[in-house]
Structures are given as structure tokens and as C-alpha cells.
Design a protein around this nucleic acid. Structure first.
Lengths: 243, 243
DNA sequence: TGAAGTTGTCTATTATCATAGACAACTTCG
DNA sequence: CGAAGTTGTCTATGATAATAGACAACTTCA
């Protein structure tokens, strides 16, 4: 198989190889710390040139998923991010606990108007002015999730700019004097990634995603913000703790 | 966006455009007979060169999904294949009823050994010799499903060669003197396509598939063959008729 | 120490991807 | 008819994708 001698599918060969290896890591065939097969062996199993394998491994290494050691082999770096769903959920703490570096980045901030549903979640009237923040969160260099967050524009004026500077929801709330907050009910569903999120999460089109809807409250129970998050299903594992 | 000025994702631009249009057809934004937007307009919405759009449309036209009319426009040809699940289910009849030409093709035939589960379905002992047939079914030039079929090697010796010649399970059974057969219980689940099936079905990696497991019996209730089929979810719609 | 196996780097070639511009051929509609 | 809009075809250019072969640099292990 190659881009030259068969009808092209529009998907580069190295991407097929990279996806195959990533799937192997995701489903446990290659565990964290494991040594991958040699480049030659991978090339033979996929019936592909060794350079094509190297392109695939380079893409995975660039995301921190594998690490090559000259003369020795290529090793699996990452594992599924264990993501406990607790009342006090902080992305940075969860990622940091796994020894990885949390990062956040603003994609877009804009003004919005509360739908009836958003208003109910936030304890506002329908039509109330909102700030809508579209952000992506990464562990090391691997995108984990994209979130759409809505806050009251009256309570948090200029929230978009503050998030762009701090890159953290926790610090954003601190900026407005909120010292602590808790997560309310969380709804989890699954779906297929759309083209926009696929590009943001560096996911192949149509891969499964975990969809999480949740609203955070301050310690008095007043709603602060409501979120709609889409997680790359193959990179994260939710842990629900009973009790 | 282009292959040149951004980090490449390993998926060709024309494929993204083609997938977008096909999704539009699948979810009803473009109905059968509808005129698509002009090539220029599509190019603008995807921010892509017109030639790239033409490449995408050519791929869809080659599969019979759209039809271009010079000077007029490009029109949607296909619609989801309505696939009724009845006791007497024949792929060729279902496809023919929709005015499309059914095709079947052998991918691979090999000997196999009955697992406990396969043996139970076929009324054999575990370890009994089987013939395993891997086949793909198309409506016109669009792949609809890939099936793995197991038959008893003792009852149907050389079944692989017969299927390769006849390209039809019904004719294969006729060759061995089976004049009619009925479908037993059918189990339907969903999943994500793997790389092998994705290539066979001309599906993007990770797209949803409908997984059907079923066993066919002769009129006396003796099991003939058991199947494991994977349908491209976006091209087919199962109809379950009550009664 | 030395052989075998591994990743890293280099050159080279061919096909595909994407863009750009121009014009022909055709349909639709006023 | 004639203008506007559509698909079809041509040439051209630069960047990627994939293959092939060779050799260096390094690690592991007997």
C-alpha cells in the first residue's frame, strides 16, 4: 500500500501508522514504559517504508506519547490520564498529580446571550448577558479537552481577557474575589467528535469523545459558571468515586 | 489552511471537504435530488481552492454519491439504503428494490476452527472444521458492509471457491442443494470502525459502524451459516418491522 | 572486545496535494 | 439573443508524501 500504487484514500500513510500505534497504547497493548517494536518490524507489519514509520513516530514523539532512545528503542511515555470526578475538580491539580504539566489556552472569547437552559443553570434570566470562553486544556503537549464556559457578564466583566492572561479558570475566579468553588451535578455522555473539535484536539475525524456538562458553584451554592466540555476519549479515563 | 502553510494533519484537504459534504448528505442537509452549492461557494466555505473542491466532488461522484451536470450544477444522487430486517433477508433483493445494483466480492477465504461460541451457533462441536469467508457488499459503487461468514467445512467443502465464482451466498447455498433459508435471531450493536474495515468500506478512521451478528437456518431449522457483519452506519438505515 | 540490533541522518527519486490563473462549453433566465 | 452562472479542461508552480539505499552513532549482550 502506498500513496502511489493504490487509489488514494486522502489519508497519509504515516497517519494510519501513527493512529494504529496510538490505539495500541490507548487499549493497553503497549503499556507505559514498554518498548515498541523496532522501526523495521513496524515497517514490515504495516508494509511500509521505515522512513514512513519514523514520520509516524516523530508525530507521536512530538506530542510526548513516545520517546526514542538511540541504539536502544522507542518507549511509551504516556498513559491514559486518570481523571477523578470529585466535587472539587481542578484540571491543573489532576494533571500535575500525574507528573505532567498542565496547560490551558484561550481559543476564543465572545459575548453571548443566555438561552433558557443556560439561564436556569446559572440562576439568571433568559436573555441575560454572558461571557462565552472557548478553551483547550493540555497535559504536556497532548490536548485533553476543549471546553465552552459561560459566565455572567455582569458578575465577571471582561472575563475573556482575564482568562487569556491567566490561562486558568481558578485564577480567573480569584481575580474576581472567588476563593473557592465546588462542582455541582455532572452529566456525562459520549459522541463523535466534529470537525472543529477534531482539529483542536488533534483527533481523527469521528473519533469518540466524552461530553461533560457541569456547573460550578461558590461555597454558598451560588452558580458561578457552567461548562460544556469535550474530552478525547482515548486519552482520558474518568474515575467516579462512590461515597 | 493548506498542506503547505500549516502543520499537516496527515489528512488531505480534499478528503476533509468530501467527508463534510458526505456528512451533509447523510444527515439530510442535502437531500436526494438537491443541488449542491456551486464549486466556488463550497471553496469559500471551506476556505480552499476550487480545484480542491473538484477533487472532493470527483471522489464522491466516483462512488455515485453525487452527479455533476455541466453548466447547471452538482446534484445529490444517493440516499441512505433502507435495510429491512426480516426473516427472509437477501442483500441483493434489498439493494435491487432501491433501484441500485448489488455487488459482492470475496476478500479472503480460509479454513478455520470452531470456537465454542461458533460451534454453538452452528450446532457443531468445538474444534470442528469451518470455512471462513470475508466478503464485501456494495450498492452500485458504494461499499455497504463487510461480512465474516462461517460455514461447516464438512457440509460445504470448497465453499470459498464457490463464493468467489458466484459472489452470492444464496447461490452458494443453492450449489449445495439448499433451496431456501431463513434468518434466526439478529443481534445489533454499534462500534467504531477499525483500520482494516475502514479501508474496505472507504470510511474515515473511527467512523461509527453497525455490527450485526446473525445465523441462518434451513427450513427445518438446521443452522447453515453464521455471520458477523459491519455496516457503514452513515450509508444504511435498518428497518425493524414489528409483527 | 566484538557482533548484532537499534535509532539518527543523509541523498535521491517519483507521485500526490494544493494553489493559481485562464478559458472553453454548457445551462438558465430575463 | 445575451448576460450571468455553472462545470470541464488546460498549464504551471511549490510543498508533501512515500520509497530506496547507505552509513554513522549508539546500546545491548554474549
Amino acid at each position: 500500500m502506498s500513496m502511489q500504487d493504490t487509489a488514494s484514500s486522502g489519508v497519509a500513510l504515516w497517519r494510519l501508522v501513527a493512529d494504529g500505534i496510538e490505539r495500541g497504547i490507548a487499549d493497553g497493548r503497549f503499556a507505559a514504559g514498554d518498548k515498541l517494536p523496532g522501526e523495521m518490524e513496524i515497517a514490515e507489519t504495516y508494509r511500509v517504508n521505515r522512513h514512513t514509520v519514523r514520520r509516524a513516530l516523530a508525530a507521536l514523539a512530538e506530542r510526548g506519547l513516545v520517546r526514542a532512545e538511540r541504539g536502544s528503542g522507542t518507549y511509551v511515555e504516556a498513559q491514559k490520564l486518570a481523571y477523578p470526578l470529585r466535587s472539587r475538580t481542578r484540571f491543573s491539580e489532576i494533571v500535575g498529580a500525574g507528573g505532567r504539566e498542565p496547560r490551558g489556552q484561550l481559543i476564543e472569547a465572545s459575548d453571548d446571550i443566555a438561552t433558557r437552559e443556560l439561564a436556569r443553570e446559572l440562576g439568571l434570566k433568559a436573555g441575560a448577558p454572558l461571557v462565552r470562553i472557548e478553551a483547550i486544556r493540555l497535559a504536556d503537549r497532548t490536548p485533553i479537552c476543549v471546553s465552552t464556559t459561560w459566565l455572567s457578564a455582569e458578575l465577571f466583566p471582561g472575563a475573556g481577557a482575564v482568562f487569556a492572561a491567566t490561562r486558568s479558570m481558578t485564577k480567573l475566579l480569584e481575580h474576581y474575589g472567588v476563593r473557592d468553588y465546588r462542582r455541582g451535578a455532572t452529566r456525562i455522555t459520549a459522541g463523535i467528535v466534529d470537525a472543529t473539535d477534531a482539529a483542536r484536539l488533534d483527533l481523527a475525524l469521528g473519533r469518540p469523545i466524552l461530553v461533560v456538562d457541569a456547573t460550578d458553584h461558590d461555597l454558598e451554592g451560588r452558580p458561578l459558571m457552567t461548562k460544556h466540555s469535550r474530552f478525547a476519549a482515548e486519552r482520558v479515563e474518568f474515575l467516579v468515586e462512590n461515597g
